[in-house]
Design a protein around this nucleic acid. Sequence first.
RNA 1: GGAGGCGUGGUGUAGAUGGCCUAACAUACGUGCCUGUCACGCACGAGAUCGCGGGUUCGACUCCCGUCGCCUCCGCCA
Length: 431
Amino acid sequence: MTERALAGRLAGLTGTEARLQGWVHRIRRIGGVAFVLLRDRSGVVQTVFDPNGPAAAGLAALNVEDAVEIKGVVRAEERAQGGYEIAGKQLTVIARAEVLPFEVNLPVLKVGQDLALDNHPLSLRHLRNQAIFRLKAAIIAAFRDFSGAHGMVEVQTPKIVATATEGGANLFPVDYLGRRAYLAQSPQFYKQLLVLAGFERVFEVGPVYRAEPHNTSRHLNEFTSMDWEIGFISTASDLMDLEEELLHTIVARLRGNEARHLETLGVDPAANLPAQGIPRVPLSEARRLLADRYGKELPPGDLDPEGERLLCEATGGAAFVTDWPLATRPAYAAPREDRPELTDSFDLLMGGIEVTTGGRRIHDYPKLRASLEGRGLNPASFGFYLDGFRYGAPPHGGLAIGAERLTMAMLGLGNMRDATLFPRDLERLAP
RNA sequence: GGAGGCGUGGUGUAGAUGGCCUAACAUACGUGCCUGUCACGCACGAGAUCGCGGGUUCGACUCCCGUCGCCUCCGCCA
């Protein structure tokens, strides 16, 4: 049996007989010719049949999205998109497709979110969806490669945990063989401990869970967190420098290997990356800028979503917001040396949404203990975490990038569900 | 948790000052025609008691109340 050829890789096969397998993307019957567009993981290729030839019966019964095998001779053909087509000799249906609940071969999928999710194996076949998730995979792969190249070790931290890392009640309780446990809302404590454990630099790509009943286009109850934790840094600026380099590395990778998918979506992944570098704006300055330029008066505390959008607009797509007051950050956030009322931490806003939170951590054992106590937290309940700092904890810091949020920002998506294969939200637990 | 909006053939939409709705358009589906299409084209056909329940009215897809489902925004964060 001849090896399976792929629709998007026919260049070297001109003149030979090829065997392709895939799905029927579209059928066009024009009197004396029939075109069957075959789609596989590499792309779409046109095959041509004589509707009165040997394949007549199969052709007549063919449905869009049938899984098929097609044999035929590869030829260069200017009239075909992509420059190649298959002169079809044999058409075999591997598995029939029933009449579709919606069309999957339109330039843009026209279907409600709910129906699309209920039929996700079908809606994901759409070329735009294929492009999104292949690009997301490439973003994550680039994160991995970049992290490894910068001396970080990939680690796996537990997703079933005994305590909260951020405080708050946003934890999913689970029954752990009769004991109360929770789904991890962040790898925070564990990644810090692994830095202290001698790995110095670690990274993780993994799921995190937030039991918050939020109902927006950029919140889900399960998402993918891309984390760094790095020892022996001096300030959070080191982290921002590194993240900015990472973002450019990701863009280069998408423009290289994944250019075809960017083209499908018609997007520029660097559209929200300011050419002159991502500005670093202290929170107080961001507030002043919003007031001066947009007349937007914010209540004390965090920026609101509109403020985040406007700030990105003002800075050419993205901004690091720095110098968050102690009260706005968790107990482990390290204060600035020169201005102890502010933390040495940052958020990265990109395309109007918060994509990253990061910062330097408190590494001094007595100070960490005092910070927890200062928040009214009981140090005893942080046992293993706090104890880790007793034996020579180096200065360190890290960040967490929401993989779906970054994908949204780079691909210009309006809803985080579009960047999540099987989204978990307030309503949806299946598929 | 709060606010707003939407629900019309399989899908996506139009119709909304109540009567012209015997509910329209596109596409998908079925039948036929067409030698090179590019979301091919043309003709014909089938397909919706307008989410559900109640009310107002001579008359409701349209107005009112309730209910169910969904979407968006806000709070919070990645």
